[in-house]
Design a protein around this nucleic acid. Sequence first.
DNA 1: GCCGGCGCATGACGAATGTCATCGCCAACT
DNA 2: AGTTGGCGATGACATTCGTCATGCGCCGGC
Lengths: 201, 201
Amino acid sequence: MIRILLAEDQHMVRGALAALLAFEPDLEVVAQVAAGDKVVPAALQAQPDVALLDIEMPGMDGIEAAARLREELPDCRVLILTTFGRPAYLRQAMEAGASGFLVKDAPAERLADAIRRATSGQRIIDPELAVAALQKSESPFTPREREVLEASEDGSPVAEVARRLFLSEGTVRNYLSSAIGKTGARNRIEALRLAREKGWL
Amino acid sequence: MIRILLAEDQHMVRGALAALLAFEPDLEVVAQVAAGDKVVPAALQAQPDVALLDIEMPGMDGIEAAARLREELPDCRVLILTTFGRPAYLRQAMEAGASGFLVKDAPAERLADAIRRATSGQRIIDPELAVAALQKSESPFTPREREVLEASEDGSPVAEVARRLFLSEGTVRNYLSSAIGKTGARNRIEALRLAREKGWL
DNA sequence: GCCGGCGCATGACGAATGTCATCGCCAACT
DNA sequence: AGTTGGCGATGACATTCGTCATGCGCCGGC
């Protein structure tokens, strides 16, 4: 019996996924949480074999939760399940120690299969996404440029981004300027949009 | 036996919802589609009693699909199921002739219940959402302010927005400034984000 | 050992943006 | 008739943003 922890903030989707898994005789959902920061506590209590984590969650995102979980329960495999098949998410998920990465666009049947494979130690990457990630031109950003761009996505002014990243205001402007140049945008907002479209984030 | 059509673009979510409904002995999913423009053709063929429509779909959005469906198959009830409980969506759904409106945040158990009630002619509105819609302060924007804000969402500079809306550059800045003030933001980007969060767009 | 690239910073400058006061026009409301 | 408020515009001003040149330290590769 494979014990599963389900982390997904949309109640109905979570319930539906649980129903989907309930049809599999060898799978058992032993815990359900709706927020990223509840993942580790629930896992410590329920001792699942696999954690199925959404990325977009309140409290803590699924990537971060995955990393924490790998520290606290190294025996628990992590599967990331997300709406957005951004290459950057895939990369981050792998860095966080996830065993697999699925998009919600994938066929429903693939889910149970992925869970079984994860427990047997395999890595599961959504084939469509893997192809997309490889086809997508490599991001031309330096790590810092990406970091600064991402920190600007909520629209906070340069000064605040600088504070958050412990950088000088001028430095932040330089990185943004460079990112704007590389995307061919006219300002940071467009740069952010174009970078996302090209899968550079 | 209540016959159900399921329209939802994310394959895995669709499959999971089908699994959820499969547990109900009196409900039967007779058709599944992944795009809004496939709803009416599939419904004509499968003759469902209830159509469960996501709003965010390729091809045609769920609201529009609902309206078309009401014309073609007036006996088929329509339930809107969506991620975003925006008051505007709720209003549009009702205008399109939907019998009910559910958010994916709602408890999974409520779904089957809503379907049964819809077939018996009742209207179903997610209570949380109804409360939220009433609590939500009405948008403080004037029509022009909203228009200018929305035209700025892709990050184009003021000059371009002005050209698109046949306004002077200064006027656009004025409306943006006013919108920034009303949202309590520090620049247009934040204003856009905050306005969305508050359901003012 | 000498690049070249990245990280970080500074300073300066022009362009874009945000704010404010003020104006005219028109429609609605009192 | 007068007041109010949305709409559109202008001009001036301060701030923020984007760009560029330049400097320094660090590391990896040739």
